[in-house]
Amino acid sequence: MNTVSVNENPFGRKLVLACLLPILLVNIVAFMVPVLNLAAMSFRAASSTGSLEEGITVSTWLGLFGDGYYWSMVGRTVWFGILITIITLLLSYPLALFVSRREGSLKAFLVVVCISPLLISAVVRTYGWMVILGDQGVLPSLIRASGFTPPRLINNETGVIIGMVEILMPYMILSLLSGFGKLDATLEQAAGTLGARPFTVFRRVVLPLSLPGILLGCLLCFVLAVSSFITPKMLAGGRVSLLATEIYDQAIVTLNWPLAACLSVLILVVFGAALVLYGRLSKIVE
């Protein structure tokens, strides 16, 4: 049977365009327009009471760049994003590897188990962590029962990291599983027959072949970690100020929409940088 090439068939090309058009429109309306609005908002003026004023100004931007507080906030946000992503990766990788090596219905079951947390909203799961990590919570009580003084696990950076890692693990596991396509048990056996010890097999064969999945998972988790505000808000106890939580405060509490817009654009820049890095690294890995 001959396959009809889309490029050679003008009717086929039109059809493809027609099929793409709706999603293109949705993207323009639901993504581009709000982003442009956001950029425009960052040039509006806000009074000290939070009211929006007429006219265009770059003062919010200048204020932002001139204030070391926001620079350190960007730095902290990126650092937290990286830290959370790395911990998520370290915890998810063995799980994903284990699941990817099972077969048939057991594998399907394990995949469902791994991603089932996504069925529950992040808010509910975070409340769960508050119950577990809280001063009267399950974990500190256990530590106390075994005769130690529990460290503070919530209302600080530790709580945010624990909560975020758990929230992000399903995404990481899914990305890793999708990226493990090139992994083949035969390759590992082949390396073994060539004289590679198990750890060498992992380092020289398994790890390089799972890099695409690792990169994808890291990009996804970094972006989600940097942009999430519900979990940090609930577990930080006001002690960890990140870009996303600051945007929330400025937009919802202080009503300084221009500043919130500036910070949102800043976060987009961070994401852009992450994407570029991802693109570069993917090319190296390929």
Binding site: D184, T186, Q189, A190, T193, L194, G195, P198
Partner: peptide, 16 residues
């Protein structure tokens, strides 16, 4: 396996 010093050629070749 890694201590047996045997060369194996696989049906799927198993090239890295």
């Amino acid at each position: 396996t890694y201590r047996r010093n045997m060369g194996v050629m696989f049906q799927s070749y198993a090239l890295f």
